[in-house]
Structures are given as structure tokens and as C-alpha cells.
Write a protein that binds this DNA or RNA. Structure first.
Lengths: 384, 384
DNA sequence: TTGAAAGCGCTAACAT
DNA sequence: ATGTTAGCGCTTTCAA
């Protein structure tokens, strides 16, 4: 007879009783302890089936001190950047049977603090925080050095033991982007910067200035402004700048979202991109390729980066190796249509869409690529 | 003297000893038990500070049987739809101090099964699964009726007690979309359907057929094909259909991703949208508005839907009320540029961008709207 | 108002 | 190869 479905879930004791063995034996079977006779093993498995036993991981965690859980804090869940990144991380964690506790800090330091404390109280085995707004001192204070902490683009290099940082090469990326605009012949290049006080914003501005200096261009503070790193932010700044007498002829944006805002403003007011305004973003969001013109941008490969973060914390948890505290992550310029007058020929556009379709692979929008050809006649089972 | 930072975290016993009271008293203070003298309370709080105590939620869960955690399973984390939806859910859960355990089923029934079992083992207080591929029988078998289960667009109505389904009105949405195309004067309207066997795909096809019937149009199976619901899927089908002799003059797609794929193909081969091909999607992804032309689509308000799911499971957990097993969720047609020849005047386009900027609010891409005006002169702290 | 003790379901010494 | 038993850190009767 099976158990009454409304009763409490079965415990190891129930299994033990049912199988006529001790709890230790049940535990042994479940944890693949080698020294169990096949018969006993079978008996136990049968009992497990019979009483519908499922281990209570809370209890296990209490005694082992491990929750097999990683806490992940992101600044803005609705930013598609993190969808891909978290997916990569989750894939990596799954392989080691770890779960992911997701927290959306919502660009709010207070909320981040709250979550950090919560994750420690929940005894997660590691914490990952993206674009943290807290100082290393505060992070150390809250997290301590008992539990591995991985930051991505933290504002300072990690100080505490057991803390790691992934350093996205924002300076080089911004330099590349700006150089590219200069090479394309643009001369009044504005920079729409991210939130002041965020390091990534600081670094991307620095890269912009480096490129200017390296090519002997003057740096004009009037061509730089910061805003929230969103579509609206870019849109607002574009209007403000493009309506001036001496408008810029190109804009390097802090991120793709801002660049898209600029693109929208240009579309609305009829400013040609890339003819009148060259445009470069940062991140390479999945949607960057879909814009018209497709957005030139600095690619941070999100899915691989997500996998990397997963691998790093897993290593830290297993204490495998911690060679350096700061892990660099390279970026690369993706030249597409928005940044060069000669970039948008008919053929170029066609090649671009084709390569997009090819690249929309595992780590991009949507699922595995469908077959290249299809019979339009094939209809789904009809309904209604 | 503060505790050695390398030692184990402080427990309630440490606090009790430090404060010279019993563990019960500490527990009372932490859980706001009313009958504690202010002095004792203060003493305990001081001790908590002194030993840097943080409650161990694992232990608490073991005894209370509640983990204050909700498991959420989505089919594809890189689909921006879920970024917004999960954000809504998370916001709702946070208000009640619940955490979110995120699982990406990756469109794989096996992986979904694995996660479902895991979540039960982890004793989450509720489970939410989006677009489940499992039958109600299987869901009931794995989850049981002890823990609340909320499905969104499940393949069948829930059978078990304690199970709820949110029913997105796919049929009506598809009908609206198709009717709209008919009203715009299109006559050979194709439907690019979603994966066969998925109810949402079935329902959207049904809505398409309903609209045809209601307006006396013939239903032509040759105008329907199914594919993976991705950009590539849409791209592939568009090529197959548009190269036929008798091509469709409009396409209603299963979702926005497919519609974007169609748009890309049209862009590549020079088919005018909406002139030669009218196009309607489904979902209203954040990026739908950003396309050129902006995509007409059936809006499923993602952030509010996410909040709703959070509220529903919270209600179920707290046993507040469970009036019906099936909660309807309405959709609405968003007419934009891709579906009507008269829809893309200069003024219309301008109004569209403006309303987009206005609507890019709390529940959309990016953060709260920035100030409408800005002084471009304001520069961030210079660097490098 | 506070304390002592039992026990949540599991793992891990230590016996046998 | 299997059983006994003692906790993990907390909440919760039940006494005091």
C-alpha cells in the first residue's frame, strides 16, 4: 500500500523501517557509499520507491554546512545582458548540481546590501555580484572571507582572501570603439557616459580619452555627458546634443541601450545614421544586430562570461585553485552598420544578416538553429 | 573583543552566553515575541552585534518546514520575455521576504523534470513553471498537492488541488491580430506557427482560423507552417514562403522573435514591410518597439504578469484564498508600423517614438525615466 | 517573563 | 557490511 498522499513526506526512517535496515544504510545507499551489498542496495531502492522518499536537502545542508546553492545578484534583471549571462552561469552550475538563488538589486545599493546579508544567512556556498555598488570594505564586512565572493566589474580590486573579480576590459574596448570612429573619418566624437561613480563608466570614458590622445585629437569636455544607461538616457542626450549648433558627427555610447536611444532619436528627427552621425555602443546585446542599421558595438560575450563566473565560483568552492584575484575578460569590437559610411552597401548588409543567422547559435537569442531548409507545406496539428 | 574572523559563524548559543540569557530568549527577541522586557531585548541586541550573529536560515527551515523560497522554472532564460517577467515576480516576492530559486529548463522536458524534483527536495514553499512541457498527471506526481504549484500556459487545466494555472488569452490575441491584418486589407495571410504540441501554438493557430472564419476568408493549410519560435525559425520560413510563386501578403507569427526573423529576411531581400508584407508578432518583447518598422504585436504585459504570478503563489502559500484554479490573463493588440500601409506616416512615426519613450517606464527596458531635459555640459568626474 | 529540553531529517563518528 | 548515536542551529512545547 502506498502512503496517504496527504500525510507528511517520507523520511529516511520510513525507508529504513520499510526496508528493514538502519538509517545509516539508507544514507549509504543514497550517497553511493561503496560498501553495501547489491541486495541491500536493491532493497533500499525498492523501499525508496515504495514510500516515495525524496531526501530533504535542508536537513542535509544543516549537517554538512553546504547548501549547494550559489547566490547571484544582478543590478537589473530586465536588461537582456543578464538573461544571457545568467543562463551561462546556470548551465555551469547545473553540471555540478548547484542551484542558483537569483536576486535583483534593481540598481539600488540598499537592496544589494539586504540581499548580500540574506544570502549569507541562507548559507549559500558562494556569492556572485554583478556591477556591485558597494566598496570592497563593505563587501568584506558583510560576506566575510569564509564564503567565496565573485564580483564582476567591482569598483575596486578585491582585498579580502577568497574574493575574486572578473575585470572586463572596458578601457581597451572604449579605446577600440573610439579609434574605429576616428578611422572612419569622424572628427567631433561625443561620449555619452554611464552613471558617474560607476567604474565601468569611468573606464570607458578613460578609453575614449586615450584614443583621442593617441590620435592627436583634442579632448572637449563639452562633448561628454552622463546619463542613466538606458534607452531613454541615450534618447534624451541625443536630443540635447543634436540640436546644438555644433553637433557631434559621431557618438560613442556607454552601452547599447543608450546607443539604441540615440538611434531612435535619429530615426525620429531624420538624422542619418551612419551618414550624419556615426554610432557605437557597448555590450553587444542580442538586439544590437537587429537594429537598422545594425549597431557597431564592443562585444562582451555574455553567455561565455556567465559560464566563466559559474566555473570560477565552483572552483573557489571546491578550493581547486585560486591563482589570481583578478581575472581579465577580453572584449572585441564588432563593426556593423552604424559606424561607417561605407559599411552599408547592399552586399554588406546581406552578408551581415547571413552571418547574424549563422551566429544566432547556442549562446544567443532563441534556441538551436533550425534546419536551413523547410517544407512550407508541413502544417501543425490543426486545432479549433 | 570581537570574534576571530576565521572561526565559525556565531550561533544563538554564543549570543545567549554573551548576553547571559537562554537561547529561548534570544529566539524570542529575534522573532519579535512581545513578552520580553526592553532591557533584556537591548541586552540581546547588543550581544548580537558583539558576536556578529546572523541567523542560520537553514536550521530555521528545518524546524519550521518553511524555506521562504519559491522555485521558478522558465523554458528559456535568454528570451527577454522572462527577464521582465521574473523581475516582476521577484519584486513581489521580495516584499514578503521570499527568495527566488531560478531554473532554466532550456526547452527540455527532462531538465524540467529534474528541476521539479530538485525543488521538491529543496522543500521550496511553492513552484512556478512557465510553459511546462509536462502533463498535469506528471506534474501532480512529482510535486504532489502539499506544495502549491502555479503553471503559466500549462498544456491542460490543473487537476490536483493546490495547483493553479494562469491562462494567457492566446486565442483572442491571435484572433485580434489576424482580424487586424484583414482590416488593413491583406488577403493572403500566412501563419508561422510555434512548436507543434505546445498548447500556446495550438491556441494561436486556432485564433488565426477563427478570424478567418469570422470574416469569411478561406483557410488555406498551405499558408501555415511551424518552426522553432526563434529569430532563425522566422527567417527560415520567410525565405521559404516569400520565394514561392503565390507569396503571402501578410504574416502573423507565433511570437515576436519569429516576426523579427521575418523582418530581417525582408530587409535582406528587399521586401517592403508593411508595403509588400504585413507583419504581426506576439508577446510584445521590449525590442518589438525598437525595430524598424516597429512591430505590431499582441501584448502580454510581462512585468505585471510576473508580479501576478508572485502574488498568486504567495496567496497560495499563505492559504489566503483560492477562488478559481484557472486565472485568465488578458492580452491586447499593439498596432505599430509593421502591419498597415497607412501606419507609417512621418507624424505617426514621431508619435510612436514619443509614446515609446513615455512608456519605457518602470516595467520596461532600463530604469526609471531620466529627466526630460539635460545640460549636455555636465561632465562626469574625469578619469585616465 | 524566561529557561530547559525535545526534536526537525539528515550525516558522520564510532561500534559491531 | 551494517547499526547506534550524537549532533548541525534553530523553534517550540512545557515548566518555572
Amino acid at each position: 500500500m502506498t502512503k496517504n498522499p496527504r500525510s507528511k513526506p517520507a523520511t529516511m526512517h520510513d525507508v529504513a523501517r520499510h526496508a528493514g535496515v538502519s538509517v545509516k544504510t539508507v544514507s549509504n545507499v543514497i550517497n553511493d557509499w561503496p560498501y553495501v551489498t547489491p541486495e541491500t542496495r536493491q532493497k533500499v531502492w525498492d523501499a525508496i520507491q515504495a514510500v516515495q522518499y525524496r531526501p530533504n536537502l535542508t536537513a542535509r545542508s544543516l549537517v554538512t554546512g553546504k547548501t549547494h546553492t550559489v547566490g547571484v545578484i544582478v543590478p537589473d534583471l530586465s536588461n537582456p545582458f543578464f538573461g544571457s549571462a545568467i543562463r551561462g552561469c546556470e548551465d555551469e552550475l547545473l553540471e555540478s548540481q548547484y542551484s542558483l538563488l537569483l536576486c535583483n538589486a534593481n540598481e539600488d545599493a540598499e537592496r544589494e546590501r539586504y540581499y548580500l546579508n540574506l544570502l549569507v544567512s541562507r548559507a549559500v556556498d558562494a556569492v556572485i555580484t554583478w556591477g556591485s555598488r558597494l566598496t570592497q570594505a563593505e563587501l568584506s564586512l558583510i560576506v566575510g572571507d569564509q564564503i567565496p565572493l565573485l564580483t564582476i566589474d567591482a569598483s575596486e580590486p578585491p582585498t579580502a582572501a577568497n574574493h575574486l573579480n572578473v575585470d572586463i576590459d572596458n578601457i581597451a574596448g572604449a579605446r577600440l570603439a573610439t579609434q574605429h570612429l576616428i578611422e572612419q573619418g569622424y572628427r567631433r566624437i561625443a561620449h555619452f557616459a554611464g552613471p558617474e561613480g560607476r567604474v565601468t563608466a569611468k573606464h570607458r570614458l578613460a578609453g575614449y580619452r586615450q584614443a583621442l590622445e593617441m590620435t592627436g585629437q583634442p579632448y572637449d569636455p563639452a562633448l561628454v555627458a552622463s546619463q542613466t544607461p538606458t534607452i531613454q538616457g541615450g534618447y534624451v542626450l541625443a536630443q540635447a546634443f543634436m540640436r546644438q549648433d555644433r553637433r557631434p558627427d559621431a557618438i560613442f555610447c556607454y552601452n547599447d541601450l543608450m546607443a539604441i536611444g540615440v538611434l531612435l532619436a535619429c530615426r525620429q528627427f531624420g538624422w542619418q545614421v551612419p551618414g550624419e552621425v556615426g554610432l557605437v555602443g557597448f555590450d553587444d546585446l542580442p538586439m544590437a544586430t537587429l537594429m537598422d542599421p545594425p549597431l557597431t558595438t564592443v562585444r562582451i560575450a555574455q553567455y561565455p562570461l556567465g559560464r566563466l563566473t559559474g566555473r570560477l565560483v565552483l572552483d573557489a568552492i571546491k578550493n581547486a585553485s585560486r591563482p589570481q584575484q583578478s581575472v581579465p575578460y577580453l572584449v572585441e569590437l564588432q563593426v556593423r552598420g552604424s559606424s561607417g559610411k561605407g559599411l552599408l552597401t547592399e552586399n554588406g548588409r546581406r552578408a551581415m544578416v547571413e552571418s547574424l543567422m549563422a551566429s544566432l547559435g547556442e549562446d544567443r537569442l532563441g534556441q538551436p538553429a533550425p534546419a536551413a531548409t523547410v517544407d512550407p507545406r508541413q502544417t501543425p496539428d490543426s486545432a479549433g
